[in-house]
Design a protein around this nucleic acid. Structure first.
Lengths: 245, 245
DNA sequence: GTAGATTTGTCCGTATGTATA
DNA sequence: ATATACATACGGACAAATCTA
């Protein structure tokens, strides 16, 4: 007695295999839902169920009015270690890194931020939110919180496109290291989906990190949502290479 | 001009908030789809769309014929570091760890396994597959590969429920450390979903790791799929292991 | 720039299957 | 065995975004 596989799942598997096999090239458009429905002899909604699963896995992306497009399959390795630097990280893999600042302002610390930075609740923070891109494609959505009394004018530096490393150096912080990291999986909400150019519900990897200065004082509390379909997080062993430049 | 939010999304947000707020307790049953449809004044399929999103995010779990149930919200922190030990990891958080061995046999190394273990392709490996549980709830699906010539009789040890640490000690390996880890996000396929008791398409965190002995020789190559809704991966700073400056 | 055709997104209604209580 | 409740699949209708002539 075989357990019958649902139609939408069989269609999903077929398309999945065809994409993995290179039958549909990255960036190309799939046949329309109507065409696929005819090909598999099913209703359009059944095809949509299969395409939805592919979209959540990040293999395809639908654009209303345009069609369903195959996404690039290769994920870029993103190193996480004692010295995590965004720009350096991407340059190492031959990508062109860039940032888009969405928001930069002062705000009161939430409970999580206060405990992470070892500050009293309602302490004044400088919060920066933005998007990180590799080759003009969004890979992560970040929110960084700094103590505002220690870094009173961080905003202008970051808004001008300077890296965090450079901005901190302007305040005499020559080096900083990663104290702790927590990685979890989440589904993209509507806002995140729009910023990261993924489907709502797509998989995101949340990295919550605390960076400290050489004296061990907390500098930054950052929450970064990575598009799971576009990056791998790589944690190397203790042979960490000192960088700084 | 406000952009109208889809109905299913509004319902999703409402239920999401009610669950987060504790209005529906963990383990309890939600109203039936028909009841919810009546409550929100929509068709049953619109409610299903909202419930589907909640299920993929891991907040609820549907059981055909029974109902939709609220899942426990707390994720257990799983430490990943130079010395990652499953049993110790869970005992630290007050859980009861256990293992279920699905498969244990010798096999030829795949290309990925060969390069990871620094062995020739087609080398003989001992491969163990199984499920790790915390308090009888599946949290991860693992596949570990060991060099068969070095550990000829590993299978019986592991099948008896011994930990990997104990099994390796029987072969004179007193210690081992994590050399590298790669974390990525994936959607559960049908087989993984059944083993881990999640819905197909649910979020999984894949951890690919290489463990080495004190001499630096690769011992084990492991691939572990964690249920993203049930665990956070915690990477602590260098205050735990040897800090090679 | 505009009008119309194309294509995906949402929502409804109905019917049937399957697992559970 | 019967009723309940979720799962799958079909069909139709319209809206919204995109593309094209």
């Amino acid at each position: 007695m075989e357990k019958p596989e649902p139609l939408w799942q069989a269609i999903h598997d077929t398309l999945h295999a065809e994409i993995a096999r290179g039958h549909w090239r990255a960036g190309s458009r799939l046949p329309t839902e109507a065409d696929l429905a005819q090909r598999f002899g099913v209703n359009r909604h059944t095809v949509r169920r299969a395409l939805g699963a592919l979209a959540e896995a990040g293999l395809v992306q639908a654009r209303r009015g345009a069609g369903v497009f195959v996404r690039a399959a290769d994920r870029l390795p993103y190193r996480i270690g004692p010295r995590t630097r965004f720009h350096q990280n991407l340059m190492d893999t031959g990508r062109t890194p860039s940032r888009r600042i969405l928001h930069s302002a002062q705000a009161r610390a939430t409970e999580a931020e206060a405990t992470a930075l070892n500050l009293p609740v309602d302490a004044l923070l400088h919060v920066v939110e933005g998007i990180s891109l590799a080759d003009a494609q969004p890979v992560s959505l970040f929110r960084s919180a700094f103590c505002a009394t220690r870094f009173p004018e961080l905003g202008p530096h970051l808004a001008k496109g300077a890296s965090i490393t450079a901005a901190l150096r302007a305040f005499g912080v020559s080096d900083y290291t990663r104290k702790s990291t927590r990685i979890s999986g989440h589904a993209a909400d509507v806002l995140q989906a729009r910023h990261l150019e993924v489907a709502p519900g797509a998989m995101l990897l949340l990295s919550e990190a605390i960076n400290i200065d050489p004296d061990g004082r907390p500098l930054e509390y950052g929450r970064t949502y990575f598009v799971a379909a576009r990056v791998d997080l790589v944690l190397d062993g203790p042979e960490t290479g000192p960088v700084v430049a």
